[in-house]
Design a binder for these strands. Structure first.
Lengths: 191, 191, 191, 191
DNA sequence: GATGAATGAGGCTTCATTCAT
DNA sequence: GATGAATGAAGCCTCATTCAT
């Protein structure tokens, strides 16, 4: 009865991610999460005081992980164009490899279930992207318009692009969608 | 209390829209909707067999209205560029005038609460947009890439742009955001 | 399934009184109350927002009823002595006839489950008793000491007396206990 | 945090007393007791097999201590009157010095949480009081009525008196309440 | 058409208790 | 002796839905 799993908390988070993605937040009882995770009801509440805290934790984690993946190797690139392209490919790559996490973020990006503070923390991970745009403008590569606007447009276009890419299973097709999408984004902002 | 709705059904729909936007589907009991709408609990279920039917009806309505508004006056324009610009301005204008409805659509675009059929019907209203892109490509105004991809990019960028525009109260600022956004979208796709 | 009982609320209150007396507040689940009262779980919460509100309502009712019974016919008596004796007999009579209510009051008089406001309202019903003592002092029938002190002593002695009387089933014995108790109280305060 | 208890068991008992008084039995989780006492959850259950055993132990202790304090120096007094007065002063003194313990006893004297056996043991400590009354009757100092009745009246009046005395912070006032109360009790029973 | 009291399945959370370390 | 992660039964309460009036 007393098991040796070193990481019940991890099991809960992982299970919750999948279930939330499949059934939504309200459609996923905590009892189902614990059952699927192979722990007792009480265990979930030992690690997360409330269901909301579990959601929040998950949201912060996934958003943080996504941001980290997106930034990978950016510094090695010289021009804003190259940096953005790398970033876009990173994002697409992460989304392709983690469709559940992507769906989770999409689903809850606008959800009132996610606390405001989690949303803010989530956003903060992507601030470096705005700096990148700012630098591009300064260097004359990007059109001189409000950086936060470009950031929004880029972020939403990127997200739409990845969702679209995920709708096909064909690798070639996906790559084409991504390259076309990155072109769209770059032409949209370049000086 | 709700003097502008002679019709109870209308009062329910209107109230539900506001409440869903503020509190989400799961956070809005039908009892609260009927109370705020000034009708009895039973009345809501006379007009809508289930809560989900109410949600679906609302979703279809709002999506349909948005699509109708976006298409207004498009035929008068000649070039794809002009058509798209008009369409973008319509969308932005509608969003500015109906922030609650916009928020509703944003929040529930990915929600499992909305039935698949409602989602599909919602999407169908925007198919004319894809035709528009197709025509633009044929006329050489738009780059020759998969139209559905452009459609996705445009739609998500538009939505991000409007959300960003709504974050400020300054009319001038809003207009600037919208014009910059429409430029971004156009440059992104033009041949 | 839909019954015609005109007074489910009353059934709930009555059942709750008995069960609380037998099992205490914490030992009585709301589910048991509704089951024994022959109503659905939800019905209890339709009439009482929370379990605590049910307790409070019950406490106020019982205390109010007790106070009313105690005051019955007091005005007809002339002297303080006669008034107090009548009051004491009323109290004892009520306690004998309503042992469950008495036990309920005893049990929860000091309980943190009963809200402060309910306790205060409960006490307020007995203020007339303090006035009675004050008048007795003024008329020289009762020793001139702080009336609130006498009130406390009298109230607690009365309550102890009734509890003691209830411990026997013999009517004669009970009457003796009551008369002896009323003597005790009167000699304790008379001038 | 709790530096005065070298013994964990003692710390648990002390903490439990305070918490039970403030929040009632049902409102005080064992986890809170152990946390406040600075021990692990498991430790509490090493010393007390169940929560009820902890409650019982506490109840027996407090009741025993109270009885012991009340009886202090009684033998030195000659007359029943003097013995009772001494006993009353002892009781009042103990109550003033141990308001938490007093409140604990008041609150749980009628509680179904306390086992029957603990209640009986608690009562047994006060049997000497009944003997004292019996002796007073035999010596002609106390009215010849059923001793157990007098015992009940005296006990409840005493308890009401102490509660009342505790409601003021003024030392003079308190002493007056106690002396008046002891008069009340004595006049109530004297021959 | 309209009402709102009534239903009861089911959700979230608490907490006494256990036991491997 | 002591710890605290883990358990799971059980409690309070919500809320979509029904139906007699």
């Amino acid at each position: 009865m007393r098991e040796s799993s070193p990481d019940k908390q991890e099991a809960i988070l992982e299970t919750a991610l999948t279930l939330f993605t499949e059934r939504g937040f309200a459609g996923t009882p905590t009892s189902l999460i614990s059952k699927e995770a192979g722990v007792a009801t009480g265990t979930l509440f030992f690690y997360f005081k409330t269901k909301e805290e579990l959601i929040d934790t998950l949201y912060r984690r996934v958003k943080g992980e996504a941001a980290k993946e997106m930034g990978r190797g950016i510094d090695k690139e010289k021009s804003a164009k190259a940096k953005l392209r790398r970033l876009g490919r990173n994002a697409a790559g992460w989304g392709m490899k983690n469709p559940a996490k992507l769906k989770f973020m999409e689903q809850f990006a606008h959800s009132p279930f996610v606390s405001t503070s989690a949303h803010e923390e989530g956003m903060s991970h992507f601030l470096f992207l705005e700096d990148l745009v700012r630098q591009g403008i300064h260097d004359g590569e990007i059109r001189n318009v409000e950086p936060s606007g470009i950031f929004c447009l880029m972020a939403s276009a990127l997200s739409g692009m990845i969702a679209h890419a995920l709708s096909t299973d064909d690798r070639k097709e996906r790559e084409r969608i991504i390259e076309d999408g990155l072109d769209f984004i770059w032409f949209g902002m370049k000086a």
